[in-house]
């Protein structure tokens, strides 16, 4: 097994005529790491994933999985990859068992004992034709075919789409088990809570550009806080415009909500000039962090 990084994207760009789908993307995923890939619709997430698997070719740059080139070594590298598409498409007239047998034959290595365990945990219906299954049950079959050969790198696009909360929890356990075994995962998702829950790092992509990469396990590196302040007499919003790291995001008769990306001391001193009745730190979501990076990239 090649000891190089599970995923290494270098100066990757994809153009469709004059449309730039992805521009100069650089990122790496390490062994035993779960990497979240976040972005709005049309940001370039699916384009990046499709290029990794050589569904489409890069316009420039390269993508390597365990040191294998995504184009030249496309067949070899897929021996180490498990993939789940964003909108999973399975063979409607086959049962779950038939789909897995078909794909296992093509892959030539599957751990059937492990598969049986996953089937049990996911409560996946394996004997009914796929076309009769609900979206959630199809997604379970999709997860099974991605995990069945215990790949060294999982590439998952919206992996929990359609799953109920209990099965989502099973999926989180599956991912963490793979992580403990030293495997890596690249997860594209819109579910920011989920990414925050299971990922070690996250990359934010917008309009084809990677605008930030953050370590999610280290809160200190996410220098972004949100405060709700109740004033005795609400100050003028323009009073805070001179502070570049302080922004008022909402205001009513009594309360103002601030986001603070700089020094807390500066913020405290800024509001100290007014009679403060209450100060409450709000929970910061990844969406808030993402919007911060997006707005910075717009400047």
């Amino acid at each position: 097994m090649n000891s190089t990084k599970p995923l290494c994207i270098s100066e990757f760009s994809k153009l469709y005529g004059e449309l730039i789908a992805v521009e100069n993307l650089n990122l790496e995923v390490n062994k035993g790491e779960i990497f979240g890939f976040l972005g709005p619709n049309g940001a370039g997430k699916s384009t990046t994933i499709r290029t990794m698997l050589n569904f489409i070719a890069p316009s420039s740059g390269d993508i390597k999985i365990f040191g294998l080139d995504s184009v030249k070594d496309s067949v070899r590298l897929k021996e180490h990859v498990g993939y789940l598409a964003g909108d999973i498409a399975l063979y409607g007239n086959m049962t779950g068992n038939q789909v897995l047998n078909h794909l296992a034959y093509l892959r030539k290595n599957s751990d059937w004992k492990y598969v049986a365990d996953l089937i049990n945990r996911l409560d996946a219906p394996m004997d009914r034709p796929i076309q009769q299954l609900s979206k959630g049950n199809k997604q379970k079959i999709g997860l099974l075919q991605a995990f069945m050969h215990k790949p060294d790198l999982l590439i998952l696009d919206e992996p929990t789409s359609g799953l109920d909360p209990l099965i989502k929890q099973v999926f989180y356990e599956m991912i963490l088990e793979m992580k403990k075994a030293g495997k890596a995962a690249f997860i594209s998702s819109h579910d920011l809570t989920e990414v925050q829950k299971i990922c070690d790092r996250a990359g934010f992509i917008r309009d084809g550009k990677l605008i930030a990469t953050e370590n999610l396990q280290d809160e200190n590196t996410i220098n972004y806080r949100k405060y709700k302040v109740r004033f005795d007499k609400i100050p003028n919003i323009s009073e805070f415009k001179k502070f570049t790291d302080i922004r008022v995001i909402s205001s009513n008769d009594k309360d103002m909500i601030f986001t603070v990306t700089g020094s807390i001391d500066t913020f405290i001193k800024a509001i100290a000039g007014y009679k403060v009745l209450d100060l409450d730190e709000q929970e910061t979501s990844l969406e808030d962090v993402f919007m911060q990076y997006y707005e910075k990239s717009q400047k």
Binding site: V75, K78, A89, L90, L103, L106, Q145
Partner: peptide, 14 residues
């Protein structure tokens, strides 16, 4: 058209 080609192309076959 149906998307099942992805299943084949994601497998280690040319």
């Amino acid at each position: 058209d149906s998307g099942t080609l992805e299943l084949l192309l994601a497998s280690p076959i040319s």
